[in-house]
Design a protein around this nucleic acid. Structure first.
Length: 815
RNA sequence: GCCAGGGUGGCGGAAUUGGUAGACGCAGUGGACUCAAAAUCCACCGGUGGCAACACUGUGGGGGUUCGACUCCCCCCCCUGGUACCA
């Protein structure tokens, strides 16, 4: 394309200006302006560099930050690096390059790329999770959790991946294989640090209600927490005086339909209650289940399997003896690890009962249990549900009512009690890796001794070569000198922890560190925290919808309980940007060869075009494909603008000092209104289209009034800040546009004298009339009936009804 | 299976409380400029029929409510994301 505007020069000039003048420095505790904290999910600086997906969210927050500054807010808009993590460690193992070196290189690349887009970050607040000055405070927070009794160690059957030489979190295992690399994963018990997030389940659930997050994200979190209400019921085991099985059920109303019980293979009582003649079958089943991966136990296990234990339980409502089975469809990790099976009214039990020909007894009528389990709790009616002595009956009730009645009875007779269960499990908080935050604890045999704050940070030892320990422990097991600590007084030897923290740790609280990033005495200053928190707008990818946001909320609540933060929730408003797909409509990936490199886009079209295009593609939250000729469109828009106002010698053309005409005033004020409203709603695509309408209007004028152009430049500023600054200075202004007041619209210019109304006959548009605004009904109808096409369509018919919606539409109904 | 979000021209997408469907941009077609091309500028641009005026039709499919439905209600289909034996 010829005659391209000199974006390279302009962009470099203004980026330098902003940096030198610290234009975007956020001032703490500034009281004459309202504060606004706008946060991006900070990136993991991978070796591949920035991807066009990253700048989408960053552009959105940047435009919003610039807009908010022009609206008079004191904006905090920081950026940093979530730089611990497996890839750098894998790279170190393969090449010998220390993770710290590789990480620094990657950060430099990311930073250069991010800066090339002209984002208005306060770079003085840059943080890096791998910096010991940062992770000192990550360790400090761990100590707070530990002291509060929320961190504990447990032997947990974890996901051991022999290839990676590490244990993976559940979310890192997909279909029984490692998320990274796709290596097989097996279950192996190891000593692990756990965090008691389950203790906060209820609050994490309740406080979602007041957050300005999309319902879908809130729902994902609700589902993840997975609260179920029901009852714990005690079933005595026949022949074992002091042994009973406790089960959790959400359907205590169906107790009379419980025809057998099932224990998880790992259930601690299984061995005890197994009869001699069933022992070998049960043992072999249990051993088989132990070896099964999660994949085998879930996805591929279409067929129910199980073995009878030889023992019977007594159903507490009717004293019936029911067989106790063992099956892996019951999980030890949920509820009590044992269930009462009600095949008539539970799909899984139904399948199991059919497979093993166990009795199916209907206790809720309304379905057809010869075909499938009937699980509705609103439409059915309880039947066959009365004790023989007649002292308890729920017959005739709706199941949803019977649930409560049964719980009352269970509590009264001491056979059970109301109970709540969550799907949420405690958080497995350690990794067998080098490149993570070391745990600030010492081990003395089975005792753990936390370090004191004054001993922090506990830094990572510099290893000559990072290699797996081979034992399942992290490479830190190879660092003998670091590992052993000798008490100078007693000579006693303590051992350090070889586990390190997961990547989530650093990202759980970074938004707090941005508030006070250089504080060496505390994690953050409470006064600054009170001033800046909560984060007013948080934008990032939907891949963090559950875990990162749940973990961060959990830590935040703990910090709140300890008095370190002043808000119950960290992120007031959350928006997830959609994915940017390749030109083929597929997810961008190296293997598909459809990756767009932002560096090339910036080199070819400039940062302003890149920013504008990413926002013009469609609604922020939706996924949308990249289109190479689409970017030409916005590029053309900027070029036309430049050519229209800047002559060949680089000077501003002559603008008119006249007042804009009425039509132009309408465009100006309608644009101020629409662009502002759209920005408030993060509807960047429609805001940009309004700017195009505005610009097209100016193109059609013989001479452009200065007022029209200046207002336009101000509205353009958040979107294409480099060009806007340049035009602003060519307009003769000497200060940055960054804090220029956002234009104010005047409603009086938005109302015109006349309005065009559509006239419909039977709902079909047949004519248009131009009429005075707020003309009365009779005048409107008269004008309508004067239209030839209307007369034509009405002629010879009876007018049934005439509808006039003022300034909107006329509809004449005829028969 | 369950939960959430979507289906609008050739494409990305617009449409306040139900009130002229297709803003804006891309692609395409025709024209101007040019020796020519690129760039630029102007015009057209959902489909069918018609020289045209215009008519009919059209927002995943089928019903309904309404003077009027992309918008509200019911049923169904498809796509995307999440989740998956959670008792």
């Amino acid at each position: 394309m010829a005659d391209r505007y000199p974006f390279t020069k302009i962009e470099a000039k203004w980026q330098q200006y902003w940096e030198e003048n610290k234009t975007f420095k956020a001032i703490d505790n500034l009281t004459d302006k309202p504060k606004y904290y706008i946060l991006d999910m900070f990136p993991y600086p991978s070796g591949a560099g920035l991807h066009v997906g990253h700048p989408e969210g960053y552009t959105a927050t940047d435009i919003f930050s610039r807009y908010k500054r022009m609206r008079g807010f004191n904006v905090l808009h920081p950026m940093g690096w979530d730089a611990f993590g497996l890839p750098a460690e894998q790279y170190a193992i393969e090449t010998g390059t220390p993770p710290s070196i590789k990480t620094a290189e990657n950060i430099a690349t990311f930073k250069r790329q991010i800066k090339s887009l002209g984002f208005s970050y306060d770079w003085d607040r840059e943080i890096n999770t791998t910096d010991e000055k940062y992770y000192k405070w990550t360790q400090w927070i761990f100590l707070q959790l530990y002291k509060k009794g929320l961190a504990y160690q447990a032997e947990v059957a974890v996901n051991w991946c022999p290839e990676l030489g590490t244990v993976l979190a559940n979310e890192e295992v997909i279909d029984g294989k490692s998320e990274r690399g796709g290596y097989p994963v097996i279950r192996k018990p190891m000593r692990q640090w756990m965090l008691k997030i389950t203790e906060y389940a209820e609050r994490l659930l309740d406080d979602l209600d007041n957050l300005d997050w999309s319902e879908s994200i809130k729902d994902m979190q609700r589902n993840w927490i997975g609260k179920s209400e029901g009852a714990d019921v005690v079933f005595p085991v026949d022949g074992f005086e002091d042994l009973s099985l406790e089960v959790f059920t959400t359907r205590p109303d169906t107790l009379f339909g419980a025809t057998y019980m099932v224990m998880a293979p790992e259930h601690p009582y299984l061995q005890t209650i197994t009869s001699a003649e069933n022992r070998s079958a049960v043992d072999s089943y249990r051993q088989k289940a132990e070896r099964k991966s999660d994949l085998d136990r879930t996805d591929l296990a279409k067929e129910k399997t199980g073995v009878f234990t030889g023992s019977y339980a007594i159903n507490p409502v009717n004293q019936k003896r029911i067989p106790i089975w063992v099956s892996d469809y019951v999980l030890m990790s949920y509820g009590t690890g044992a269930i009462m099976a009600v095949p008539a009214h539970d799909t899984r039990d139904y399948e199991f009962a059919q497979a093993f020909e166990l009795p199916i007894v209907e206790v809720v009528s309304g379905g057809d249990i010869s075909q499938e389990a009937f699980t509705d709790i609103e439409d059915g009616v309880m039947v066959n549900s009365a004790s023989q002595d007649g002292d308890f009956s729920i017959d005739g009730l709706k199941p949803s009512v019977a649930i409560g009645k049964t719980i009352e009875w269970l509590e009264k007779t001491n056979k059970g009690k109301a109970a709540v269960n969550y799907k949420l499990r405690d958080w497995l908080f350690s990794r067998q890796r080098y490149w993570g935050e070391p745990f600030p604890v010492l081990h003395d045999g089975d005792n753990s001794i936390p370090l004191s704050t004054s001993d922090l940070p506990l830094t990572l030892p510099v290893l000559e070569r990072i290699k797996p320990s081979g034992t399942g422990e992290s490479p830190l097991a190879n660092a003998k000198e670091w590992l052993e600590v000798v008490d100078p007084e007693t000579g006693k030897v303590f051992k350090r922890e070889t586990n390190t923290m997961p990547q989530w740790a650093g990202s759980c609280w970074y938004y707090l560190r941005f508030i006070d990033p250089h504080n060496e005495d505390q994690a953050w200053d409470p006064e600054k925290e009170k001033y800046w928190m909560p984060v007013d707008l948080y934008i990032g990818g939907a891949e963090h919808a559950v875990l990162h946001l749940l973990y961060a909320r959990f830590w935040h609540k703990v910090l709140y309980d300890l008095g370190f933060v002043s808000t119950r929730e960290p992120f007031r408003k959350l928006v997830n940007q959609g994915m940017i797909l390749g030109t083929d409509g597929e997810k961008m990936s190296k293997s598909r060869g459809n990756v767009i490199n932002p560096d090339e886009v910036v080199a070819q079209y400039g940062a302003d075009t890149m920013r504008l295009y990413e926002m013009f593609m469609g609604p922020l939250e939706r996924s949308k494909p990249w289109n190479t000729s689409g970017i030409e469109g916005v590029y053309r828009f900027l070029n036309k603008l430049w050519r229209h106002f800047i002559d060949d010698s680089g000077e501003l053309i002559q603008l008119s000092s006249e007042k804009p005409d009425a039509e132009t005033l309408t465009v100006i004020h309608a644009s101020i209104k629409k662009v502002g409203n759209d920005l408030d709603n993060l509807a960047f695509n429609t805001a940009i289209s309004q700017l195009m309408v505005y610009s097209n209007h100016m193109r059609d004028l013989d001479t452009v009034p200065r007022e029209a152009f200046e207002t336009f430049v101000a509205l353009l500023a958040p979107f294409a800040p480099h060009m806007a600054e340049e035009l602003w200075s060519l307009l003769g202004h000497e200060t940055t546009l960054a804090y220029q007041a956002w234009p104010v619209y005047d409603e009086s210019h938005l109302t015109t004298k006349t309005v065009t109304l559509a006239v419909q006959v039977n709902g079909k548009v047949r004519a248009q009339i131009e009429i005075d605004v707020d003309a009365d009904k009779d005048a409107v109808l008269k004008a309508a009936h004067d239209q030839a096409p209307i007369q034509q369509h009405v002629e010879g018919k009876t007018i049934v009804k005439e509808i006039v919606v003022p300034n909107r539409i006329v509809n004449i109904v005829v028969k």
